[in-house]
């Protein structure tokens, strides 16, 4: 799951891309010296990678994000340093895209470089407990819309079956079954399943049956 130089996380909004990108990059850092997270989210005003900037920096991961993220500047901006993701081939790149086709639009300008190098995972982050992607058809519709604007085809799925704070091991097992159905239908492998750490402690890993990315949730505030 860590083989490719560039790993792009895309998918339906609210499917968990940011939490996955942050945790994935910290795991990646254990294997590679230089790891950068590129926040290309041009959609979300709140709940961004910047909330995890200290966690990332303490873990030795660089965060490339618009200086306007989580300020009052309400424009879809990207950091100009984002081009490093294709130019600096000595570093591993993890890309956090905004949700749906609207968010995936930001990838368009990088797609030629990414395809030319051809060393990437384009990952469809999938939470079957999101109502619009509950059915395989719903998920497929969003997946196709994203591919149309990002100009890159998905080549892997990351299952992220969760119901927020109410997630149980059963939630995860049932969710994986749906993700496997999607995997069969579109003929893409499940790269890993993301499972929140406390849920993972109580889970039977054999029943998860894919590789696992343990997730430590980004702390957004102690009111949640």
């Amino acid at each position: 799951m860590f083989e490719k130089r560039i790993t792009i996380f895309s998918g339906h909004y609210g499917s968990g891309k940011t939490n996955i990108a942050v945790n994935f990059s910290l795991s990646l850092k254990k294997l590679y010296e230089k790891v950068s997270v590129y926040d290309l989210d041009i959609v979300n005003p709140y709940f961004r990678t910047v909330d995890a900037v200290n966690t990332l920096n303490n873990g030795g991961v660089e965060l490339v994000v618009s200086p306007f993220a989580e300020t009052n500047v309400d424009i879809p901006a990207m950091n100009s340093a984002s081009y490093k993701m294709i130019h600096d081939k000595s570093a591993r790149a993890v890309v956090d895209l905004g949700g749906d086709d609207r968010g995936a639009l930001a990838l368009g300008r990088f797609c030629e470089g990414i395809k030319e190098e051809n060393d990437y995972y384009m990952v469809f982050v999938y939470n079957p407990y999101r109502p619009e992607t509950k059915t395989i058809d719903g998920a497929f519709e969003i997946l196709t819309e994203i591919e149309r604007v990002s100009k890159i085809k998905f080549n892997a799925i990351a299952a992220n079956p969760n119901l927020g704070v109410e997630t149980t091991p059963e939630t995860v097992y049932r969710g994986i079954e749906i993700a496997e159905e999607l995997s069969k239908k579109i003929d893409l492998p499940i790269l890993f399943t993301a499972v929140e750490k406390s849920v993972l402690l109580n889970s039977d890993e054999k029943r998860i049956n894919t590789r696992i990315l343990p997730i430590e949730l980004i702390k957004y505030g102690n009111w949640i």
Binding site: G14, Y129, R130, P131, E166
Partner: peptide
């Protein structure tokens, strides 16, 4: 069955 939703979309639904 419960689903995971963002406040704005839950309101719209």
């Amino acid at each position: 069955e419960k689903v995971l939703m963002k406040g704005n979309e839950a309101l719209a639904e």
